[in-house]
């Protein structure tokens, strides 16, 4: 900025440090607690000093909540949600932006409206569809007095975990935003060079979208990893449990021993992957966040 004033600068630093303590403090508590012994973690006042017990606590947590299986499932789920979103929304945005057809407005609005209603308010019927993918078709046929005997249950499957989460608008608008910034002449030049629309999509749009894909990948990974309600409803088979579902299993039992050090170590394992992604790819994460919202 223009001129520097010592008081204002000191005040600015004070604010930044307070903000740092408020936002990072909880991390430090978790880190310290996860590395302490049970008596240490329960001591009042709490000591912020980390101790050497982290590996022991972590392996206790790992065993208690079967984090190995859950970790695999969470990774698969986050990866599928991310890949599905990155691929499908690129296709939809392409259809919306680059074609001269009245249908594109139908596409645009039908995707746009999904921004309004999060899963939480339509979770019951979504669950019903997942329980039998053909339920909508059956109902429509039933309306005309027809009955069919097919059923496709998505509960306790990766498809069931991920498909409903891919059915949102986030990525589509990120791509659309980007496509709109490309000069019209780019597609025209490609057309003059003899390239058709599909070829243009693969030769031009996808390579040019790399940074957007990276941005979308970071936010979708975090989104997929952090899903809580949906897996909680979908999954009854422990072999499909995700990490988020394991959180409650980490809690010390109500009247049992308060081994919060183990709980905290387990929480840390669950929190770590998205935090690492955001820390390492922060530039892309921020870009994805800002440009997918506007």
């Amino acid at each position: 900025m223009i001129q520097r004033t010592p008081y204002a600068d000191a005040f600015t630093y004070a604010i930044m440090v307070i903000g740092f303590l408020l936002l990072l403090g909880p991390f430090l508590v978790v880190l310290a607690g996860a590395s302490q012994t049970m008596p240490q973690v329960n001591a009042v006042p709490f000591s912020f000093l980390p101790q050497g017990e982290f590996m022991k606590n972590a392996s206790a947590a790992w065993a208690r909540a079967d984090l190995g299986t859950a970790m695999t499932n969470s990774l698969i789920m986050a990866a599928l949600v991310t890949a599905g979103k990155v691929a499908l929304s690129a296709c939809t945005a392409f259809a919306i932006v680059f074609f001269r057809t009245p249908l594109k407005h139908v596409f645009f609005w039908s995707v746009f409206i999904t921004l309004m209603l999060p899963l939480e308010v339509r979770v019951v019927p979504t669950y019903a569809v997942a329980a039998d993918l053909f339920q909508p078709i059956k109902s429509i046929l039933g309306f005309f007095g027809l009955e069919i005997g097919i059923e496709w249950n998505l509960l306790n499957s990766y498809a069931g975990l991920t498909l409903p989460l891919i059915a949102t608008a986030t990525g589509t608008f990120l791509y659309r935003q980007f496509f709109m910034t490309l000069p019209d002449e780019l597609a025209e030049a490609a057309r003059m060079d003899g390239s058709g629309s599909v070829r243009f999509f693969f030769d031009m749009l996808l390579p040019l979208s790399r940074t957007n894909m990276l941005a979308l990948t970071t936010i979708m990974f975090v989104y997929g990893w952090n899903q809580y309600l949906w897996p909680l409803l979908m999954v009854t088979d422990p072999s499909y449990k995700t990490l988020m579902m394991s959180l409650l299993a980490l809690l010390p039992s109500d009247n049992g021993i308060p081994d919060w050090n183990v709980t905290l170590a387990g929480s840390l394992i669950i929190m770590a992957p998205p935090v690492i992604v955001v820390a390492v790819l922060q530039r892309w994460f921020v870009r994805g966040l800002v440009s997918s919202e506007k």
């Binding site: 990072l24 909880p26 975090v222 952090n226 809580y228 988020m244 905290l264 935090v275």
Partner: peptide, 20 residues
């Protein structure tokens, strides 16, 4: 650092705060 808490799922943060 300010951005990092946003990476954490609400329930996971909840678990930490139940202790804190």
């Amino acid at each position: 650092f300010y951005i990092l808490p946003f990476a954490i799922a609400g329930p996971a943060a909840g678990m930490a705060f139940r202790f804190i």
